[in-house]
Design a protein around this nucleic acid. Sequence first.
RNA 1: CGGAGCGUAGUAUAGUGGCAGUACGCGUGGUUUGGGACCAUGUAGUCCGAGUUCGAUUCUCGGCGCUCCGACCA
Length: 407
Amino acid sequence: MKQSQLFTKTRKEISKDEVSVNAQLLTRAGYIYKEMAGVYSYLPLGLRVIKKIENIIREEMNSIGGIEMKTSILQNKEIWEKSGRWDDNIVDNWFKTELKNGAKIGLSFTNEEAHSNILKQYVSSYKDLPIYPYDFKEIFRNEVRSKSGILRGREFYWKALYSFSRNEAEHNDFYEKAKVAYQKIYNRVGIGHLTYLTFASGSTFSKFSHEFQTLTEAGEDIIYVDEKKKMAVNKEVYTDEVLQSLELDKKELVEKKAVEVGNIFTLGTKFSEPFGLKYKNEKGEEQRILMGSYGIGLSRLMGTIVEVNHDDKGMIWPESVAPFKYHLISLGKNEEAEEIYNKLQEKGEEVLFDDRELSAGEKFAEADLIGIPYRIVISEKSLQAGGVELKKRNEEKGEIIEVQKLF
RNA sequence: CGGAGCGUAGUAUAGUGGCAGUACGCGUGGUUUGGGACCAUGUAGUCCGAGUUCGAUUCUCGGCGCUCCGACCA
C-alpha cells in the first residue's frame, strides 16, 4: 500500500488525558480512533493487525478441531433466562435494548447461552460429539469504568470457543490440547516469553480455571510467578493450600503485574443442564454433555503486544502481527523506489510504501512510530553506496544491500 | 458506585469579567531533502443550557463528555 493513499496521519502529540501506552501509541500512529470511553474504531493499520492476530488464532483453533461459526450479537432474552443470567442482579454489565414492539433484547456479553441453545437442536447422539465451535465476535460490556486504552473496553473483539464433550476424559483431553494451542498463539504473536499459564479461581466443576497472563506494568492483575516452572498463581487463589496442591514453593515465586490475555475453564454442566443438552450413548442411554470455555480478547491482545513491544520512538511489531512486513521509504523522487515496490508486491510481500514528498526526518520518525519490522530506505546516498538500506525496527543500524537481494 | 481533576482551532496547549494567543497541522508561493528542515503568507476555536452581570470563554448551578485513584470485572 502506498502511504499517500492512507488517510490516517501520525501525530506528534496526544492529549495528556490518554495515559495508557497502548492507546497513546496506537492513536498517534493512526491505528485506532477513540469514539468514546472504552470504545475504539480500528483504522486501516489497526484492522490489519487485528486480522493478523485473528488468523493466527483461527489456525490454532482449527488445528485442535475448532469449527468456526458466528452467533448473533442481538440476543433473545428468553435464552438468557434459562441460565439465569438475564437478571441484572446476577449480571450487572448488560447492554440491553428493546424492539419496536417492546420486547427486551440484549447485546451479547458472552456466548455460552447462544452456543448451548443452538446446539440443543443439532446434538442428540454420541455420534454428534465431541464438537468445538467458536466465534470471532464483538462483545459488549457495560463496565462502570473502562480503562487502559484497548486493554479494557466496553466494546471489544474476541474469540470464544466452547467444547462439548461426552465425558470427563474427552473433556480433559481437549482442555489440555487447548492449553498447548493457547501457548502457541502467544508464542506466535511474540509475547510467549512473557506469558504464563496461571492458576485462578475455578467453579463447582473444577478447582481452578486457567488464565494466560502476560507480564507488564500495564496489567491489572497481580500474579505470583515461578519462572523456572513457567507457571503462575493469581492473587485470588494465592494460599498455602493452593501452592501445596500445585507443588509450588513460595520462595520461588515473584509477585508481578500482568494482563489476562486469555482464559480457559471447565463449565461442566453449568449450561448444558439448563439448556437440556444431552446425548444418547451406544446403548441408547441418555448422557449429560460436559462443556468448557476458551476465550481470547483480540483487542486486548493487540494492546498487550504494544505494551510489551515499544520504545520511546514508537511501536515495534513482531513480524507475525505487523500491519506490513516492509516499510519502503524513498527519499527524494526516484523511479527505483516505485520499481522495488512493484516487485515486492508481485512477490506477495506486504509493503507500506512511503511515496510522499516529505523530509527524511519526518519519514523516519513516522516509520519508527508505526513500527513496521523492516525498513527499506532508497535514496541517492544508498544507491551510491550500492543499493538500499535495510534496517530492522528493533536495531540501531541498518546495512546496505544490493537491490536484487530484496527479491 | 465512592473520591478527585478536566473540557479553549483538526491536534496539543496559554490566558483573561470587556480585541482569545502560541506551536503543530492544513492551504498557497519559494528554499530544502539521511532523523518530525526553513522563510513568507493564509486558514480555523472558547462542550451544551440556565443564572449573575451593562458585558461571561472566565463566576455560579445543571447537563453532557473525558481522565485518574478506589470498588467491581460472567
